[in-house]
Amino acid sequence: MLKLIVQRLLALVPLLFIVSVLTFSFTSLLPSDPVDLIIGDAGTQEQYEMVRHRLGLDEPVHLRYLQWLGRAVQGDLGTSFFNSVSVTGAVMQRLPVTLSLTVMSAIIAIVIGVAAGVAAALRPRSWIDRFATLGATFGQAVPNFWFGLILVAIFAVNLRWFPATGFTPLTQSPWEWLRSVILPSIALGTSSSAAIARQVRSAMVGVLQQDYIRAARAQGLPFRRVIFRHALTNAMVPVVAVLSFQITVLLGGALIVEQVFAINGLGTLAIGAVRQQDIPMLQGLVLVMVALVVAVQLATDVIYGLINPKARPS
């Protein structure tokens, strides 16, 4: 297991390198010029050259990349083109916001998805099953930003249970933090919970027909033990395999849902950076995202190995 973790972390290095080269070259290929955006229409040629030099854009792209790389390996992802803040600082400041949203929506997606999937699988074709299937179809079909707006209209504007917008850091007030992330997390997690529910249901229906379930019941094990210890652990094997994908989807979805709830997370930062062609900021964001996705995949692989002895390297 340790070997797997080390392998994955080592593989992260070339991956991050490739991704950074790609982002760097793509942003250089853009037809518009960030310098124009900074000095505006009224700027003179002199000002243009000055800003261009200050940002280092007058140097060839490969040199710029190497300079950036040299600092990046030391943890300095550069400075924003626009407000001269450190990219590392800005990203690290927004990271907890987006992580709160992603983690909370992943918890919601897994809890609802697994519960609905198990309930449906225990009584196939019952009204619970039909209701869960219908709900899953609905959940997957509804766009998260629209669902978010509906949630705001009902629970924030009408009922006033939750704030409609904004984010309170966990360190400031755990209760307010929970109140501020709950609606966006539901908006975000619903479609994943639907996907997970479908997976759990079909895996669970298959597992419940296995002889070891029959054997466990024949041995007189309590119903809950049969369902959770025997059936669910095995049913989760295929589910965990797709879980990393779902969490990646959540991470991407968080960027959109942040807009709906006016939350200053990585998504808001990323959209601003794209608009302004803030290359260092964009670069930093992409790298952090890639690292997050790899970390999620590693975590799910470790869990996969824990619940499925066959997948363990012997």
Binding site: D211, Y212, R214, Q219, L221, V237, N308
Partner: peptide, 28 residues
């Protein structure tokens, strides 16, 4: 009353160790 089933490939829970499988009735 205990049971042994036909297919030993599907009648043992793959996620458990032999110790857990053999001792589970004792545990319960």
């Amino acid at each position: 009353i205990q049971a042994v089933f036909q297919d030993p490939y599907s009648s043992l829970n793959a996620s458990m160790t032999v110790e857990a499988i053999v001792t589970e009735p004792l545990r319960v």
